[in-house]
């Protein structure tokens, strides 16, 4: 039994082909914005699913233009669903660009087959995605530092306090941080409380890569 996920904009036609083509469709979960046209499209999709006897859940995103928030929510829902239904599919055609990109990101990270529906022909097109653990390209120590910074995003850490927190020599920490900065995973910025100090932060979205 398959569970279909989808992103929905103003046009139900972007999602309907996948609802029709998914064999043994158990359930549909789709994301839409709070725009009136998107809510209209949601009602049409729900009606269509009712006519087919397919349970459907429409999830209204609080901000359809926040890539990280959308990706975080979608990923949480996908992981929860996967616990009971391993066969997941994702139609990423509808919604804002950032909604589609968020869905694409989750499909990449979770290894979910994704499709796109052509705007004019409504043909379903499978996307060439391969699940890769992007966080695996970091060394174990780099990953540990990044995970620590992600978990403590609200706390300002200098290189010294970070080294102390993780029990490593400052020079060793400097080595790990250089690797992380080169990869764009960590950023240095001025401490708002003390402009002389540089503090370290995980770059936006790193939760998704190391989660």
């Amino acid at each position: 039994m398959a569970v279909l996920f989808g992103t929905l904009g103003w046009r139900p036609q972007s999602l309907v082909p996948s609802i029709r083509s998914t064999e043994s469709l158990e359930r549909l979960v789709f994301y839409h914005s709070d725009h009136a046209k998107s809510r209209d499209a949601r009602a049409k999709v729900m009606e269509f699913c009712r006519s087919l006897g397919v349970p459907a859940t429409g999830v209204e995103l609080s901000d359809a233009f926040d890539l990280f928030a959308c990706a975080g929510q979608i990923r949480e829902d996908v992981r929860r669903e996967r616990a009971s239904s391993p066969d997941l599919r994702f139609n990423i055609a509808g919604g804002t660009r950032l909604m589609s990109c968020a869905a694409l990101l989750v499909c990449l990270l979770e290894g979910i087959p994704a499709t796109y529906v052509h705007d004019e022909t409504y043909r379903e097109i499978p996307l060439p995605l391969l699940r890769i653990s992007y966080g695996a390209t970091l060394t174990p120590k780099e990953r540990e530092v990044l995970e620590f910074l992600v978990k403590n995003r609200d706390k300002p850490f200098s290189e010294t306090t970070l080294a102390r927190a993780l029990g490593v020599h400052k020079a060793t920490m400097n080595h790990h941080l250089r690797g992380l900065e080169a990869a764009g995973a960590v950023e240095r910025r001025r401490d708002p409380a003390d402009a002389r100090r540089l503090i370290l932060q995980a770059s936006p979205g790193m939760e998704l890569l190391v989660g």
């Binding site: 653990s133 992007y134 390209t137 764009g184 936006p204």
Partner: peptide, 14 residues
């Protein structure tokens, strides 16, 4: 918005 891509982390390297 900078997308959460790790610089230098290529698909082929995995």
């Amino acid at each position: 918005l900078r997308l959460p891509v790790l610089r230098g982390a290529r698909l082929a390297d995995a």
